[in-house]
Amino acid sequence: MTAVVELEGVERTFDGTPPVEALKATNVVVNQGDYVAIVGPSGSGKSTLLHLLGLLDSPTAGTYRLDGVDTQGISEAEKAGLRATRIGFVFQSFHLLATRTTVENVALGELYVAGSKADRKARAVEALTRVGLGHRLDAYPTTLSGGERQRVAVARALAASPALLLADEPTGNLDSVTTASILDLFDELHQSGLTVMMITHDRNVAARADRQLNINDGVVTEEAMERA
C-alpha cells in the first residue's frame, strides 16, 4: 500500500496571547484508497487539520509528506502545483462561480495545470458525467439544487485527477435526502480507488467512512471501527 498522507509530529500553533495550540503533535498515515472521516466538536481543530493537509497552511512543527513529497521547504509555486494536481477540495459552501456554466466551473479545476482548453473541457464533461450531471453541462449554478451544486464542486475537485479528495463538511448545507445522495457519490469514488478525507461533525455521516479520526482540543485519535 502506498501512503498518500504521512503526518509525523505535525503541530499547528497560532500566535497570540496566549498562543492557541489548534493541533497538537499528530501522527497519521492515510493510504491510497482510504476513506477517512475526521470528526470532532466545533473548535476542536478539524479545519486546521484540513488546511494543513490541503497545503493552504503550514505546520509549526513536524513533517508532512503528500504523495511521497516532503512538503517542508518547497516553494510556494510548488505547493500550489501540488494543490493543482494532487489535491481536490470540496467545501461546505460549494464555492461555484455564479457567472460560469457548470462545465466552465469544473474546467476551473485544471486552470492552473498546463494543458489545452479543449482537453480541460473534455475532462470537465467526463467528471460531470461521473457525478451524474452529464445532462446539465451548460446550466448556471443558480439554476441548480444544493445537491447538484455540490456534485458540480465534486466534479471540479476530480477534474485534475487528484491523489486526495479533501472535503470540509460537504453535506453541511444539505438536507438529509441530498446528504445521502452525496454520500453515495463519495462511496462510489472510494470504491473506484480514490483517497478521501472528509470533515464532519455528524456521526452518521462519519459512519459511512471506513476510518474515523476523532479530534478533541487539537488531539487526534483513531477510532477503532468495527468492520462489516
Partner: peptide, 16 residues
Amino acid sequence: TGEIGLRQALGATRRH
C-alpha cells in the same frame, strides 16, 4: 474574496 480563495485552493499562486 471567495473566488480568490477558491483559485488558491485550485493551485493559483499569489503571483497568479
